[in-house]
C-alpha cells in the first residue's frame, strides 16, 4: 500500500514553464556530453544543414526563464509531491528511466512551453519494501504552438 496522499497527486498538472533554448546553453550541454556533432556546435555547419541553424541535441530543452532549485522541471507541483512523500518517510529518490517521442526539431533561439503532468502514481513491492513509481509526462511546445516532444520520466521513491 502506498500513502493516500501520493494518490492525490495523480493527474495533477503543473503551471506551464517557459524555457529559452539559447545557443550557448546548447554548446555547454554538448560539451558536457562530449558530443562533437557540428549541428550542436558549429553555426556555419548548422546554417548549411537542413535545419538552417544550430539545433538542440534530442533531450535538451533549454533553460527556464524563471528558475531556482535543483532540477529544471522541479515545478512547485513536483516539490509539493516530494515533500508530501518525504513526510511519509519516502526520502530516497531515484531516476528510473525516460521515454521520448521527438516530433519536430528544436532550434537555437526557440522558446518552449513545458507542460508537466503527474501521469501516474503506483506502488511496487520490492525486497526492500514498497516503492512508489511516479511517471511525469511533459509536453513541449514551441513558440508557434507546435508540439515538439513528449517526454515520460519515471522516478522511484522509497524509504530505504
Amino acid at each position: 500500500m502506498i500513502p493516500e496522499v501520493a494518490m492525490k497527486f495523480q493527474g495533477k498538472v503543473a503551471t506551464p514553464m517557459i524555457l529559452e533554448v539559447e545557443k550557448g546553453a546548447i554548446k555547454k550541454y554538448a560539451d558536457a556530453v562530449g558530443d562533437e556533432n557540428g549541428l550542436f556546435w558549429d553555426e556555419e555547419y548548422g546554417r548549411n544543414s537542413r535545419y538552417g541553424s544550430i539545433v538542440a541535441p534530442p533531450g535538451f530543452f533549454g533553460w527556464p526563464l524563471k528558475w531556482k532549485g535543483t532540477f529544471v522541471l522541479m515545478t512547485e507541483l513536483r516539490n509539493e509531491f516530494m515533500k508530501a512523500l518525504a513526510a511519509e518517510g519516502y526520502i530516497r529518490f531515484l531516476d528510473a528511466g525516460i521515454e521520448y517521442e521527438f516530433i519536430s526539431p528544436i532550434r537555437a533561439g526557440d522558446t518552449l512551453t513545458a507542460s508537466l503532468e503527474i501521469e501516474s502514481v503506483t506502488g511496487q513491492e520490492t525486497k526492500a519494501g514498497t516503492r512508489i513509481v511516479c511517471v511525469n509526462k511533459t509536453s513541449y511546445y514551441n513558440q508557434f504552438g507546435a508540439l515538439v516532444t513528449i517526454a515520460r520520466q519515471t522516478s522511484f521513491l522509497s524509504r530505504t
Partner: peptide, 14 residues
C-alpha cells in the same frame, strides 16, 4: 547521472 547516460545513448544514435 542517469540522464547523462541517456544523453550518451542519444549521441550513439545521432
Amino acid at each position: 547521472h542517469g540522464q547523462l547516460k541517456r544523453a550518451w545513448l542519444v549521441q550513439l544514435l545521432t
